[in-house]
Design a binder for these strands. Structure first.
Lengths: 191, 191
DNA sequence: CTCTTTATATGATGCTGATCATGTAAATTC
DNA sequence: GAATTTACATGATCAGCATCATATAAAGAG
């Protein structure tokens, strides 16, 4: 059955958002095209009217995840204008973020996966990382722009690594300790 | 055809080492049982005489990867006894390590994958991370043991995150810049 | 209102991969 | 060295999954 043009556009958006969440939760290989479509409320048949392949979907969904992630960072920043860096760090390293990969940072959720993905996904990731670094530069202290950029990249790495480690281990206390250690380091040092 | 007991034990070791490499290169889902056996020079039939399932193999191979990773760190430390921390950082953040995930850090290569893996793999990861933190504590400066531990965990996170980011992006210059930024931060700051 | 277009549904198709069944020849055992 | 065990090979089974073919009913064009 056919749907209206705007209904179709909305369906496409929902496929992208749903895929962005499912991929982050279960990995690129852990989610099938049919899974995504079913979660949206459609069947697998219509998929190839929207995307040319699963790889195509993966790349676009990854881009979408980066956009949402940037919006979340902007939101955190705006919520505490006098300490934006701390607000972002606290949100990123929160247990809530750790326990909800589907709506969180795509680097922490899909980083090692993406390194093995096709060119389109790698490009989306490159754009996303570039944008994130730029965003972090704006709230990172430092004398020169170069210093700020170096420091922003290092902070980004610490955030990502701490979240990956915290999700990897099977011990709640150790996981919490990892998040706390990264928070402490990032908030004390202003390199 | 049957082989001798020691030949069998050696085969088992080679299966584990080969799996540890292949999984890091292609991810848990990117490698089949038959792939591993073929790489060892055997056929898929004998696999279940050595391991109870692919999950079982994954967990044991992950443990193996952590052991090798620890040995590599010890080697780096020993090669430069007067600056062991710097030696480890330089090796971890080298382009050579970035470009050879199959023989490198299992957290950077399989971190986001492992978080979605079964209990056995999660346990192996927890042990591995614990051991890595302990090893880093020994070469991390700081007034108290608590301070050293916090700093060691944060450094570990920075290393992991930088390598994940450097592998994810599709731009050689940006990738190099990420490695260099993490190196700069880790070697300048002694928090 | 009729005709055409098309977004989606239903239902193949073909491949990959985990696991199991059975055979075989070489190693152990006695 | 005969009997038995067993590590591995060959080949099947079964399920999941990407992709394609065809049908259908609703949207949009005239």
């Amino acid at each position: 059955m056919r749907v209206s043009r705007e209904q179709m556009a909305e369906n496409r958006e929902r496929i992208l958002d749903t895929a962005a969440t499912l991929f982050r939760e279960r990995g690129f290989d852990g989610v099938g095209v049919a899974d995504v479509m079913k979660a949206v409320g459609l069947t697998h048949g219509g998929f190839y009217g929207h995307f040319s392949s699963k790889d195509d979907l993966a790349a676009q969904a990854l881009g979408r995840a980066f956009v949402h992630s940037g919006q979340s960072a902007a939101e955190a920043r705006a919520s505490e204008p006098q300490a934006p860096r701390r607000a972002i760090i606290d949100r990123y390293l929160s247990p809530a973020h750790r326990d909800d990969p589907g709506h969180g940072c795509p680097v922490a959720a899909l980083g090692s996966d993406t390194a093995r993905q096709g060119e389109a996904s790698r490009l989306a990731a490159t754009e996303g990382v570039r944008a994130a670094i730029k965003g972090l530069c704006a709230i990172t202290p430092g004398a020169t722009a170069d210093e700020r950029r170096t420091s922003a990249i290092a902070s980004y790495a610490t955030l990502v690594g701490a979240l990956v480690l915290a999700r990897m281990v099977d011990d709640a206390a150790l996981s919490d300790e990892i998040l706390a250690a990264a928070r402490a380091e990032l908030c004390s040092a202003e390199a």
